[in-house]
């Protein structure tokens, strides 16, 4: 597990240089804890895409601690902030809801271009490596060559793909896929869906229908509805989470492209303001770079010195 932690640290190095680096610079460069320092801390947090509300909450929490513990050395604030962020993230790890001994259906949803198909490819690879029998469903029948993209992933990681032609009703693909998964006795079926903007009523209705069909064909399914969020996204992420949850009952978030953004702070905002747990994070392009999100490790890695 040491290797894993190192990779996580490495993947988050940009975040560290961004958020934590700036915070440390601020705290060590000051002699006094004053209003100006708090204001700058708030700015740094906002700049990390933590979100305005969460940033203000965090600063408020730090302020309260400073008062309670009668801290007057700015250098000590690093630890205070770290504790507050860790508290916000919690230490709970919420693994994927996989059914023991029976079929698990995972549906993957999100707006356009967040990395749904790639996430599915990586997830399929990892589940297969755990000895599970995995089947994929090419439910993005809209975007040009989305089916091909999933098929390439399928052959790359060695799992089969249920597909129909471009333009077919995705609910029909989902129906077929559930039937195939049942008859082939696979362990996990992962259903891809077309990217859609959450404010498009028709497309969201389509998603509702897919969910309904899956649920009708297999009681309790989909067991996991993963919302894929791009870590580069700003405050719109919250709107996405809210609307996708309303329509498709999102059970977990997969946060992708976390390696690229110098931020990563978005995860703090998401954990703080949304009731949906982050379950997976994408921290690189490699097949192994999709990780189960462990809040405790994340907070630690965030502040680990280089």
């Amino acid at each position: 597990m040491v290797g894993l932690f190192a990779r996580l640290k490495d993947g988050l190095s940009k975040t560290r240089q961004g958020l934590v680096g700036k915070v440390e610079e601020l705290f060590t460069g000051r002699k006094r804890i004053d209003a100006e320092l708090y204001e700058e801390l708030e700015d740094i947090l906002i700049q990390s895409d933590v979100g305005v509300d969460t940033a203000m909450d965090l600063v408020e929490a730090v302020r309260a601690q400073v008062k309670a513990q009668k801290i007057d050395d700015p250098a000590m604030l690093t630890d205070v902030l770290k504790e507050q962020i860790a508290a916000m993230l919690g230490s709970e790890t919420e693994p994927l809801n996989l059914q023991e001994g029976s079929l698990t259906v995972i549906m993957v949803v999100g707006v356009n271009g967040v990395g749904k198909t790639t996430t599915i490819g990586k997830l399929a690879h990892q589940l297969k490596a755990q000895g599970k029998r995995v089947l994929l469903a090419a439910g993005d029948t809209f975007r040009a060559a989305a089916i091909d993209q999933l098929e390439i992933w399928g052959s790359r990681v060695g799992v089969e793909v249920i597909k129909q032609q471009e333009g077919t009703d995705p609910a029909a693909v989902a129906y077929d896929a559930v039937q195939a998964a049942k008859s082939r006795k696979v362990d996990v079926l992962i259903v891809d869906t077309a990217g859609r903007l959450h404010n498009k009523a028709n497309l969201m209705e389509e998603l509702r229908k897919i969910t309904r069909v899956i649920g009708r064909e297999l009681a309790g399914a989909p067991h996991e509805v993963l919302l894929v969020l791009d870590a580069t996204t700003g405050q719109n992420a919250l709107s996405q989470a809210k609307l996708f949850s309303e329509v498709a009952g999102v059970t977990g978030i997969a946060l992708t492209k976390l390696d690229g953004t110098a931020r990563g702070g978005v995860i703090i905002g998401i954990m703080h303001e949304l009731s949906v747990p982050v379950k997976l994070i994408g921290i690189g392009e490699g097949l192994e770079d999709l990780r189960e999100f462990a809040a405790g490790d994340f907070a630690a890695a965030l502040f680990e010195s280089r």
Binding site: T232, T233, G234, T261, V266
Partner: peptide, 12 residues
């Protein structure tokens, strides 16, 4: 550029 991009848009 994705119109939904957050604070990082400037760095990109």
């Amino acid at each position: 550029v994705d119109a939904m991009t957050g604070q990082d848009a400037v760095n990109v």
